[in-house]
């Protein structure tokens, strides 16, 4: 009888745990807050990369640009720029903006920013 109660007690805990997790993760998840730049939607990330391209136009700016790009992809900033370029093309960015982003990609790649 005592063993049955123990088993029932732990099963009840597991049941409550599962129910609460299901509720907190699927039914009523916590609102998004304190997210990171890396979690931004792709169109926002594309605009972020465009801002980097606009903000760091000089060749000597590349190390700073890479640091800022690492916010999107800490290990591979070039990948972040490539993905942003793709998104920008899909969204119909202006040629001038695409040109800026492409230049950034070239400069970062030349600098070896992906390593």
């Amino acid at each position: 009888m005592k063993r049955r109660r123990q088993i029932g007690f732990f099963l009840a805990i597991a049941l409550g745990l599962a129910a609460a997790l299901f509720y907190g993760w699927f039914i009523h998840p916590a609102a998004p807050a304190n997210t990171s730049l890396a979690s931004l939607r792709s169109d926002y990330q594309a605009d972020y990369v465009l801002m980097v391209a606009e903000s760091y136009p000089q060749p000597q700016d590349v190390p700073y640009a890479i640091e800022v790009l690492r916010q999107l992809n800490p290990t591979d900033p070039i990948k972040a720029v490539d993905q942003a370029l793709l998104t920008a093309q899909q969204l119909g960015y202006k040629d001038a903006d695409l040109h800026l982003m492409a230049n950034l990609e070239i400069r970062v790649r030349q600098y070896g920013g992906g390593q």
Binding site: R5, G8, F9, F10, L11, A12, I13, A14, L15, G16, L17, A18, A19, A20, L21, Y23, G24, W25, P29, A30
Partner: peptide, 18 residues
């Protein structure tokens, strides 16, 4: 004991989920 277990599980689950 069942009710206690469920309540404990719910509390732990909510703490984990949020």
């Amino acid at each position: 004991y069942l009710i206690t277990g469920i309540v404990l599980g719910l509390l732990a689950g909510l703490l984990a989920a949020y």
